[in-house]
């Protein structure tokens, strides 16, 4: 599903990623770890085409995105659900509309959207907050909305950047449980985090980034 072949990324003269290669399959749940500034977020940005690799090749769902044209980027991004560290929810939209937005630009009929969104909000335990605005919800609740938005269009890949960064233990466990459920349904999930507690002893694959390279690739 995701293939990195000798990918490097430089910002001016600063090396951020160097000779990064790995391969993620459908339904994989993989943790991307490393200290702050190791390049975790940059690697995620390369996957959703926010950054272009300086060299190497990136393939997402059989599409080589290393040299993709501007016009095709939205198509690639629609295959990917992103759980942002800072949530990036629309404050002028209700919880329902925040989740529905990706279905709206995918051209789905409003009645179908209603069914899909409500089903998903129920799954993440937020059905009661359908008409609320995100800024009135707690951090954990907002993160669950973000996960619902990332899942709603049934993407092939979900990228989560520090999904539990601002949450207490209980909320963090709920979020991790949701992400594991998604991967069990065949979606590839890549979680960038520096919290070892999230993956230690889980048996999931871990890619450890340090000094711009993948230092280790192991099962936790």
């Amino acid at each position: 599903m995701i293939v990195f072949s000798n990918v490097a990324k430089h910002f001016d003269n600063k090396r951020v990623l160097h000779d990064v290669s790995f391969d993620l399959k459908n339904g994989d749940l993989v943790f991307l770890t490393g200290p702050s500034g190791a390049g975790k977020t940059t690697l995620l940005k390369l996957i959703y085409c926010f950054e272009r690799p300086s060299s190497g090749k990136i393939i997402i769902d059989n599409i080589d995105i290393s040299a993709i044209t501007q016009g095709k980027i939205p198509q690639v991004r629609r295959k990917i659900g992103i759980v942002f560290q800072d949530f990036r929810l629309f404050t002028d939209k209700t919880v329902f509309d925040n989740v529905a937005v990706t279905l709206q630009f995918n051209g789905m009929h409003p009645q179908k959207i209603r069914g899909y969104v409500n089903e998903l909000l129920e799954k993440v335990g937020m059905l009661k907050a359908t008409r609320e605005f995100p800024q009135h919800l707690s951090g954990g609740e907002q993160q669950r909305i973000v996960i619902a938005r990332a899942m709603v269009s049934k993407p092939k890949v979900i990228l989560a950047d520090e999904p539990t960064g601002n949450l207490d233990d209980e909320n963090a466990r709920t979020i991790m449980h949701l992400l594991k459920e998604i991967s069990l349904k065949g979606t590839t999930v890549l979680i960038a985090t520096h919290h070892k507690d999230l993956f230690q002893g889980s048996g999931h694959r871990v890619l450890h980034l340090n000094n711009s390279i993948i230092e280790s690739d192991y099962a936790a």
Binding site: I73, P74, R77, I80, I82, F84, R88, V101, F105, R149
Partner: peptide, 12 residues
């Protein structure tokens, strides 16, 4: 910010 988010979500 909202426009940037829409772009990241793949909005045409």
């Amino acid at each position: 910010d909202d426009i940037e988010t829409l772009k990241l979500l793949g909005a045409p």
